[in-house]
Design a protein around this nucleic acid. Structure first.
Length: 855
DNA sequence: TTAGGGTTAG
């Protein structure tokens, strides 16, 4: 028996607790259970006083029914005292001796075991209970057979622990054990409860483990993917997706759609594309839902979305109303009025012949398309269409109609539409009101915005006394009963509405301003910081919390009113209020700094946002780059260039206006004739214009690379492969740096070498090189008066192309000094052509320049 | 299970 017991033990045995039979050690236990010495002694006494046990032998015990009974009662006693470790040992030894588990179970008092479990749970010894369960599981005793009642208790208790933030793993382990015996966990605990706990803890692995053992696992996986997506935890959603893919035999379209939607929620539309590709690779035709979701998630990229739509057609997947609605959304986002109209026509056709029914979303979206394009008349035409088709405008439709007027700057018309809406019994919500308020602000009718706001706050909205019935009446029909007037007394209440007899019929809807409402009003404060602050206080008093937009507006107000202190304070307050500034908040703060000439702070804010992993956008970059209207030192120029490079790396193809200004100011500064500017020098045109400053221009990268690579020490400039403008900038930049060094007391110690050409260039390239060379010489000699040496002084010149070129382009022949220099070029052909500016000439030039600069 | 409306920065 002893051997048997020891053999079945699986864990190392601490020496501090033991179970003995007749003074023989049969087992030691880990002392997890708080031991009650009295009780231990009692039961051991009880055990040892039994004569049958003094010479117990497994083979005898097997036959002996009273020994069976004894074991069972012993086990019950241990369980009852919560000593489940010992209890399970005993059971183990009993079953290990060959007795059928059923016999042991039958002999046990279930009541006692349950009581034991309860005790352990009360003491928080969850692991003990679980350990016993698992042991039983291994021994082939069905836990539900013994613990049916306890199971519920266990699960519920585990659930509570999950709620308290304890390890979900315990619960899932328990469920896994039960699941093996088809114990219906979901009758005890709602699966969503545990899954939600996993989602909250961003634990897709545990969630997946749990979902896998639930009936209809795929549905639960779907739930998981959706919920993780809504939590913006795409990582976890993708894990759940992968786990579910591994579980199911065939691809589940529900799950594919959900993961695509999750990508949308999390702003990773590219991921959605690769998931879709994955389907196609497997030669699986996605269904309409998958296509719709994919188009929706990629709605901001009309090119891609339309491509998907084409693919959908090609694969013969039917487009439904949602597909068209998504397509209209695509048009709306892309501002493609033309395409939206085309699609609208197509939908109308299909509605005629294909049984498709346009819904309120279709109409609302197309109205929005026109609203955004400021085509308010078209928007109202669609409204007529929808009414003829028997579709009633809802609150969203009305909102879009109101926006149509607002975007067109028609404040009066906005008021009319709101009025009409009230008349037909559609309660305006705050969003609608906000559009009106914003329209006032946009058209600088600040006072009006405040007047309307206060009126609404005091009076709410009085729906027409017979509003519900007069849906068909036109606005003009009810003029005499209108609550809005665009005259001096805005939104006055007519005497009718104040008539107490009418109160029964007229419905007053309270106006509940939202954060957006207050934000719009804050914009109406102009530069009145105190008024904006008061609005914020009012917002807080009304139980609303200012959001990042509110704070951004406040920062902007401070910035524009030269209240830098206030701007900094507002930025800090935002932090203290627990709101993490977003790109716009940072950009606004940077704008405030720039506007108030706090350049250093502007740059450090920029650094800070990057440290916080906030990607600056085009507006941020441009705001920051305008900071340097006067570029002083190389450091500052480098700082700007670094930002510029950063901007390119981030994929912004900005226009190069700021860079141009920056380089112009800085590089051209070396030319004494400050009046000369790029435009006058006609450089853009010389170098085919757009090629130089166009979006593909690598000018910046080249200049930045030159400036950053030990530029000051190295006096060789390699202009090969550069355009004329680029070459000019590089050369000027180098001179500018020499000048800065010179001012700092570092004269030039070497000649400057300029490499201008390859000999192996083809004819076109050689011609360009020659033009570059000419331009550089023109700057150096003509504009700056430096002496430039070419040819034999350098000892290594050539070009076999030079002659060819000179005959091809006669204008180059007119360049000063060229024929003389070219005489030497055929003698010793080498790979490069060089120009040299002697050290002496450079220093002379610097001396002169600095002298005039010092005045 | 999809789809539509309002407020912020150059």
């Amino acid at each position: 028996m002893r051997d048997l017991l020891m053999a079945s033990s699986s864990s190392p045995i601490p020496p501090n607790s033991s179970l003995t039979l007749n003074n023989r050690l049969i087992r030691t236990f880990p002392t997890k259970t708080p031991q009650n010495p009295t009780k231990t002694t009692l039961s051991l006494k009880y055990l040892s006083s039994t004569p049958l046990l003094s010479d117990i032998r497994p083979d005898l015990g097997l036959q002996n029914p009273s020994s069976l009974k004894f074991y069972a009662s012993m086990a019950s006693k241990l369980a009852e005292n919560g000593r489940l470790d010992e209890f399970s040992m005993l059971a183990e030894s009993f079953i290990g001796s060959g007795m059928a588990p059923g016999h042991f179970v039958e002999a046990l008092s279930i009541k006692h075991v349950s009581a034991g479990f309860a005790l352990c749970l009360k003491n928080g010894e969850f692991d003990t209970v679980l350990g016993v369960m698992e042991k039983f599981d291994k021994l082939g005793i069905c836990p539900s057979l013994i613990f049916d009642g306890s199971a519920r208790r266990l699960l519920l208790s585990a659930c509570r622990r999950v709620l308290d933030g304890d390890n979900i793993g315990e619960f899932v382990r328990l469920v896994e054990i039960f699941a093996g015996y088809r114990f219906s966990v979901k009758d005890v605990v709602k699966p969503t409860f545990i899954l939600q706990a996993c989602i909250d803890r961003h634990d897709p692995f545990m969630a997946g483990r749990y979902a896998s053992i639930l009936p209809h696992a795929d549905v639960w996986f779907n739930f998981l993917i959706c919920e993780f997506g809504k939590k913006k935890d795409l990582q976890s959603a993708l894990v759940a997706f992968e786990v579910s893919k591994g579980k199911s035999v065939s691809p589940n379209m529900y799950i594919y759609r959900s993961i695509i939607d999750a990508c949308g929620y999390c702003g990773d539309s590219l991921k959605s594309r690769s998931i879709f590709e994955d389907l196609l690779v497997q030669k699986i035709t996605p269904n309409t839902f998958v296509f719709n979701s994919l188009m929706n998630v990629n709605a901001h990229d009309s090119h891609y979305a339309l491509h998907i739509y084409k693919q959908m057609k090609k694969l013969g997947v039917a487009a439904d109303m949602a597909s068209y609605n998504v397509l209209l959304k695509v048009c709306c986002l892309a501002g493609r009025v033309d395409l939206a109209q085309e699609i609208y026509e197509e939908i109308l056709q299909r509605a005629l012949f294909g049984g498709l029914k346009l819904d309120v979303i279709t109409y609302s979206t197309i109205i929005k398309v026109f609203a955004d394009a400021k085509m308010w008349e078209m928007a109202f035409k669609i409204k007529d269409d929808m009414i003829s088709a028997g579709v009633s405008p809802n609150i969203v439709t009305w909102s879009s109609l109101i926006s149509a007027c607002a975007n067109a700057g028609l404040v009066e018309r906005v008021i009319q539409v709101l009025e009409e809406m009230l008349v037909v019994g559609c309660e305006p919500n705050t969003q609608c009101c906000n559009i009106l308020l914003n329209a006032c602000v946009e058209s600088c009718q600040f006072d009006r915005a405040f007047r309307i706001f206060h009126f609404w706050k005091q009076n709410g909205f009085s729906m027409g006394s017979n509003a519900k019935e007069c849906g068909s009446k036109t606005v003009t029909d009810i003029k005499q009963n209108e609550y809005f007037s665009s005259g001096n007394h805005e939104f006055h209440i007519t005497s009718d509405a104040l008539d107490p007899h009418d109160l029964n019929f007229s419905e007053v809807i309270p106006f509940k301003p939202t954060v957006a409402t207050y934000n719009i009003l804050m914009k109406a404060c102009g530069t009145d910081y105190y008024r904006a602050q008061a609005l914020m206080d009012e917002m807080k008093a009304g139980g609303l919390s200012p959001n990042h937009i509110s704070w951004s507006i406040l920062i902007d107000i401070c910035g524009r009113s030269y209240n830098m202190k206030g701007a900094i304070q507002a930025f800090k307050s935002m932090y203290n209020a627990g709101i993490i500034p977003d790109v716009v908040a940072y950009t606004t703060a940077i704008k405030a700094c720039v506007g108030n000439k706090y350049f250093k702070m502007a740059f450090s804010l920029f650094e800070e946002m990057k440290r916080h992993r906030l990607q600056p956008n085009l507006v941020t970059y441009n705001t920051l780059l305008t900071a340097r209207s006067r570029y002083g030192s190389l450091d500052e120029v480098l700082q700007c260039l670094a930002i510029y490079q950063d901007m390119r790396k981030a994929g912004y193809n900005s226009n190069d206006r700021f860079l141009k200004e920056l380089l112009e100011e800085w590089c051209e500064g070396v030319i004494s004739d400050k009046g000369k500017r790029w435009s006058e020098l006609n450089i853009d045109k010389c170098d085919k214009g757009s090629e130089v400053y166009g979006p593909q221009s690598l000018l910046l990268e080249k200049v930045a690379a030159y400036l950053q690579e030990n530029f000051a020490e190295n006096l060789t400039i390699d202009l090969r492969g550069l355009t004329k403008v680029e070459a000019r900038i590089i050369v000027l930049a180098k001179l500018r740096m020499l000048k800065e060094n010179y001012i700092l007391g570092k004269p030039v110690r070497d000649d400057m070498i300029i490499i201008t050409a390859n000999t192996r260039s083809n004819m076109d390239a050689a011609e360009t090189e020659l033009r570059v060379r000419d331009a550089v010489i023109r700057v150096l000699q003509g504009e700056l008066g430096l002496s430039v040496l070419e040819g034999p002084e350098l000892g290594e010149l050539s070009t076999r192309h030079a002659h060819v070129i000179s005959s091809l382009s006669p204008e180059t022949l007119t360049m000063s000094k060229r024929p003389q220099l070219r005489e030497y070029t055929t003698r010793r052909p080498v790979d490069v052509q060089r120009l040299k500016i002697p050290r002496r000439s450079l220093n002379l030039w610097l001396q002169k320049g600095v002298g005039t600069q010092k005045r």
